[in-house]
Design a protein around this nucleic acid. Structure first.
Lengths: 200, 200
DNA sequence: TATTTTTGATTGACTCATCAATCAATAAAA
DNA sequence: TTTTATTGATTGATGAGTCAATCAAAAATA
């Protein structure tokens, strides 16, 4: 069995397994055994490569965020105009992979963990800032900085809120409806500024 | 010490203590000992009255929701017109007691727990439905049912989203700003319908 | 009124299970 | 042979839940 060069393979397998287990159980209170079993290795190996559960969890948030960032960069590159970039940002937030019940559950778990772990909190703050600044940057092309910041704040809140409500699975809102609602928010506010002669 | 009729006193003290400890630590993974200590009794007594940790936690969500419901009823009674009732609903959501960091942390923890506990989930679904139906009921007086449902969905999402973002304490949005953003959302959409002649 | 009995309140000590973390041992490649 | 990968076995800590025993108020009885 033992082959050389397994480290990166195992690390990735363990991080992926962690995300799946966390999504499944909807909590960070999963055991190293659960994660290791899902990754097909022994718990001891997980400790060997990550040192501690905390560290594995941190790598897991990091990985989730990296995925989202990469998707965002790609989507932004494809969209030509500021207005289309705004739509792209919204679409990426609700894309299937992000909006799947398991992923939503994992996000929620990380938000909760951020109350305790300064490291996890820092990562989530980075995500919040990035979304906000992407929105502001493109809104600025369409209205004043002040208005851009206000609209960005609202849109970001609406995106996060739709996630939370998705997590309850009571009246599943659906990807399309979520996108429409957020698009509508942005459009409606930009239109309003337009009528008031405050748009660019 | 032992006096008769302590049961209701202890139950309340324990539920209150649970909420405080959960808010403090930002997680439901608190020990019965922590809760009992905060309530000034032994862990055994907590078990005696609630049977299990799960049950104490359920009573705690129930209590949080009851508080919110009572505040909502009061606020709605004071507001005379539908439009003012809408403002009242928004204001209650962000009132100081609900928006305090500890309370926000507790809400988040419960949302996360809802992924596991069907009981907790049910309570949160009730909250979500109640907010939605209160919003719809008053919006219906101002626009069509379809529009009312759409706007209610958006406003509810925005409220929940502002909570989440509050929990990160990165760029604290503040009570006033949160209320303004949500008010703005409702006003702006109602105005839009008005211009399109779709308002009542 | 004085005494006994009953009952609710309360806890310390204990059990049992779980889990993160460690480590010594093994196996395969280099 | 040295290094890397891997695990089974073990440990130490923690925490939920149980239980038998204690204490004092209240109720019943004399």
């Amino acid at each position: 069995m033992p082959k050389v060069g397994m480290e990166p393979v195992r690390r990735k397998a363990l991080v992926d397994a962690a995300l799946r287990v966390i999504g499944d159980q909807g909590t960070l209170a999963v055991t190293m055994s659960d994660i290791a079993r899902r990754a097909g290795v022994s718990p001891a190996l997980a400790h060997h490569y990550f040192g501690s559960k905390e560290q594995l969890l941190i790598e897991t948030v990091r990985s989730l965020l990296r995925q989202l960032r990469d998707d965002t960069v790609t989507a932004l590159n494809v969209a030509p105009t500021p207005r289309e970039k705004l739509s792209a940002l919204i679409r990426v937030s609700f894309q299937a992979s992000q909006f799947a019940p398991d992923t939503v559950a994992a996000w929620l778990a990380f938000y909760s963990e951020a109350q305790r772990s300064e490291d996890v909190r820092r990562f989530l703050v980075v995500y919040a800032r990035r979304l906000r600044s992407n929105l502001v940057a493109n809104l600025k092309a369409l209205c004043s900085v002040d208005d851009a910041e206000r609209i960005a704040e609202g849109a970001a809140a609406m995106i996060d809120g739709l996630y939370i409500r998705q997590s309850l699975r009571s009246a599943p809102i659906g990807i399309e409806a979520s996108i429409a609602l957020t698009e509508d928010y942005v459009t409606s506010h930009l239109d309003q500024l337009h009528r008031q002669g405050r748009a660019k």
